[in-house]
Protein backbone atom coordinates (compact mmCIF):
# COMPACT_ATOMS: atom_id res chain seq x y z
CA UNK A 1 0.00 0.00 0.00
CA UNK A 2 2.87 2.28 0.69
CA UNK A 3 3.48 3.61 -2.75
CA UNK A 4 3.21 6.88 -4.54
CA UNK A 5 0.63 6.85 -7.33
CA UNK A 6 0.03 9.61 -9.79
CA UNK A 7 -3.58 10.71 -9.38
CA UNK A 8 -5.34 12.42 -12.25
CA UNK A 9 -8.74 14.05 -12.55
CA UNK A 10 -10.28 13.80 -16.00
CA UNK A 11 -13.09 16.29 -16.36
CA UNK A 12 -15.31 17.54 -19.13
CA UNK A 13 -16.30 21.14 -18.62
CA UNK A 14 -19.02 22.72 -20.72
CA UNK A 15 -22.11 21.48 -22.43
CA UNK A 16 -21.05 19.17 -25.24
CA UNK A 17 -22.11 15.60 -24.63
CA UNK A 18 -19.26 13.68 -26.19
CA UNK A 19 -16.94 12.02 -23.71
CA UNK A 20 -15.47 9.22 -25.76
CA UNK A 21 -12.11 10.94 -25.94
CA UNK A 22 -12.09 11.60 -22.20
CA UNK A 23 -12.94 7.96 -21.48
CA UNK A 24 -10.20 6.68 -23.79
CA UNK A 25 -7.67 8.89 -22.03
CA UNK A 26 -8.93 7.83 -18.59
CA UNK A 27 -8.52 4.15 -19.48
CA UNK A 28 -5.12 4.73 -21.05
CA UNK A 29 -3.83 6.49 -17.95
CA UNK A 30 -5.13 3.67 -15.77
CA UNK A 31 -3.28 1.16 -17.93
CA UNK A 32 -0.16 3.25 -17.34
CA UNK A 33 -0.60 2.66 -13.59
CA UNK A 34 -2.24 5.94 -12.64
CA UNK A 35 -5.31 6.43 -10.46
CA UNK A 36 -7.85 8.27 -12.53
CA UNK A 37 -10.91 10.03 -11.15
CA UNK A 38 -13.44 10.49 -13.92
CA UNK A 39 -16.18 13.00 -13.17
CA UNK A 40 -18.38 12.65 -16.22
CA UNK A 41 -20.04 15.15 -18.49
CA UNK A 42 -21.06 18.78 -18.09
CA UNK A 43 -18.93 19.74 -15.14
CA UNK A 44 -18.92 23.32 -13.93
CA UNK A 45 -15.60 24.98 -13.05
CA UNK A 46 -16.71 24.87 -9.42
CA UNK A 47 -17.32 21.10 -9.55
CA UNK A 48 -13.98 20.47 -11.24
CA UNK A 49 -11.93 22.51 -8.78
CA UNK A 50 -13.74 21.08 -5.75
CA UNK A 51 -13.20 17.52 -7.01
CA UNK A 52 -9.52 18.21 -7.68
CA UNK A 53 -9.04 19.50 -4.13
CA UNK A 54 -10.97 16.75 -2.35
CA UNK A 55 -9.28 14.05 -4.40
CA UNK A 56 -5.87 15.74 -3.95
CA UNK A 57 -4.88 15.05 -7.54
CA UNK A 58 -1.53 15.81 -9.12
CA UNK A 59 -2.99 16.55 -12.54
CA UNK A 60 -6.26 17.89 -13.97
CA UNK A 61 -6.97 16.85 -17.55
CA UNK A 62 -9.68 18.91 -19.20
CA UNK A 63 -11.40 17.59 -22.29
CA UNK A 64 -13.40 20.08 -24.29
CA UNK A 65 -14.99 19.98 -27.71
CA UNK A 66 -17.56 22.74 -27.43
CA UNK A 67 -15.33 25.72 -28.13
CA UNK A 68 -16.10 27.30 -24.77
CA UNK A 69 -12.52 26.85 -23.48
CA UNK A 70 -11.71 30.57 -23.64
CA UNK A 71 -14.62 31.16 -21.32
CA UNK A 72 -14.36 28.13 -18.99
CA UNK A 73 -10.60 27.67 -18.57
CA UNK A 74 -9.92 31.12 -17.10
CA UNK A 75 -12.57 30.49 -14.46
CA UNK A 76 -11.07 27.11 -13.58
CA UNK A 77 -7.56 28.54 -13.31
CA UNK A 78 -8.80 31.46 -11.23
CA UNK A 79 -10.67 29.20 -8.80
CA UNK A 80 -7.60 26.98 -8.41
CA UNK A 81 -5.52 30.01 -7.56
CA UNK A 82 -8.12 31.28 -5.08
CA UNK A 83 -8.14 27.91 -3.32
CA UNK A 84 -4.35 27.83 -3.19
CA UNK A 85 -4.37 24.79 -5.46
CA UNK A 86 -2.57 26.26 -8.46
CA UNK A 87 0.29 23.83 -7.89
CA UNK A 88 -1.86 21.20 -9.60
CA UNK A 89 -0.71 20.61 -13.20
CA UNK A 90 -3.49 21.42 -15.67
CA UNK A 91 -3.47 19.92 -19.17
CA UNK A 92 -6.14 20.01 -21.85
CA UNK A 93 -7.24 18.19 -24.94
CA UNK A 94 -10.05 18.16 -27.46
CA UNK A 95 -10.73 20.71 -30.13
CA UNK A 96 -8.80 23.85 -29.33
CA UNK A 97 -7.82 26.10 -32.25
CA UNK A 98 -4.15 26.96 -32.66
CA UNK A 99 -4.75 30.70 -32.14
CA UNK A 100 -6.14 30.08 -28.62
CA UNK A 101 -3.24 27.95 -27.40
CA UNK A 102 -0.96 30.87 -26.47
CA UNK A 103 -3.59 32.54 -24.30
CA UNK A 104 -4.43 29.29 -22.50
CA UNK A 105 -0.77 28.58 -21.79
CA UNK A 106 -0.45 32.07 -20.41
CA UNK A 107 -3.26 31.22 -17.98
CA UNK A 108 -1.11 28.36 -16.71
CA UNK A 109 -2.42 25.43 -18.75
CA UNK A 110 0.78 23.37 -19.07
CA UNK A 111 0.04 21.50 -22.26
CA UNK A 112 -2.64 21.27 -24.92
CA UNK A 113 -2.99 18.02 -26.78
CA UNK A 114 -4.53 18.05 -30.24
CA UNK A 115 -6.66 15.33 -31.83
CA UNK A 116 -4.39 12.51 -32.96
CA UNK A 117 -2.16 12.65 -29.88
CA UNK A 118 -1.23 9.15 -28.75
CA UNK A 119 -1.96 8.10 -25.19
CA UNK A 120 1.73 7.38 -24.71
CA UNK A 121 2.55 11.03 -25.35
CA UNK A 122 0.10 12.08 -22.65
CA UNK A 123 1.45 9.45 -20.23
CA UNK A 124 5.05 10.54 -20.88
CA UNK A 125 4.19 14.19 -20.40
CA UNK A 126 2.43 13.56 -17.08
CA UNK A 127 5.22 11.34 -15.76
CA UNK A 128 7.87 13.89 -16.67
CA UNK A 129 5.86 16.72 -15.16
CA UNK A 130 5.11 14.94 -11.85
CA UNK A 131 8.09 12.70 -11.27
CA UNK A 132 10.65 14.90 -13.02
Amino acid sequence: MAEQKIKVLIAKPGLDGHDRGARVIARGLREAGMEVVYTGLRQTPEQIVRAAIQEDVDVIGLSILSGAHSYLFPEIMERLKKEGADDITVIAGGIIPEQDVGALKELGVKMIFNPGTSIQEVVDFIKKEIQG
Binding site: K5, A32, E35, E46, Q47
Partner: peptide
Protein backbone atom coordinates in the same frame (compact mmCIF):
# COMPACT_ATOMS: atom_id res chain seq x y z
CA UNK B 1 -1.17 -2.10 -14.27
CA UNK B 2 -1.76 -1.08 -10.64
CA UNK B 3 -3.81 1.86 -11.90
CA UNK B 4 -7.49 2.45 -11.21
CA UNK B 5 -10.49 4.11 -12.73
CA UNK B 6 -12.50 5.87 -10.05
CA UNK B 7 -15.89 6.80 -11.43
CA UNK B 8 -18.17 7.23 -8.46
CA UNK B 9 -18.29 10.98 -8.81
CA UNK B 10 -20.11 10.72 -12.13
CA UNK B 11 -23.48 10.25 -10.41
CA UNK B 12 -22.90 12.71 -7.60
CA UNK B 13 -24.22 15.76 -9.46
CA UNK B 14 -24.41 18.91 -7.42
CA UNK B 15 -24.13 17.27 -3.99
CA UNK B 16 -20.44 17.25 -4.96
CA UNK B 17 -20.30 21.04 -4.53
CA UNK B 18 -22.30 21.11 -1.29
CA UNK B 19 -20.01 22.51 1.43
CA UNK B 20 -21.25 19.89 3.90
CA UNK B 21 -20.16 16.97 1.75
CA UNK B 22 -16.64 15.63 1.27
CA UNK B 23 -16.15 12.93 -1.36
CA UNK B 24 -12.95 10.96 -1.75
CA UNK B 25 -12.37 8.20 -4.29
CA UNK B 26 -9.90 5.52 -3.34
CA UNK B 27 -8.32 2.53 -5.06
CA UNK B 28 -7.83 -0.74 -3.16
CA UNK B 29 -4.15 -0.94 -4.24
CA UNK B 30 -3.95 -4.68 -3.90
Amino acid sequence: SGGALLGDRIRMGDVAVDQGVFIRSMATRG
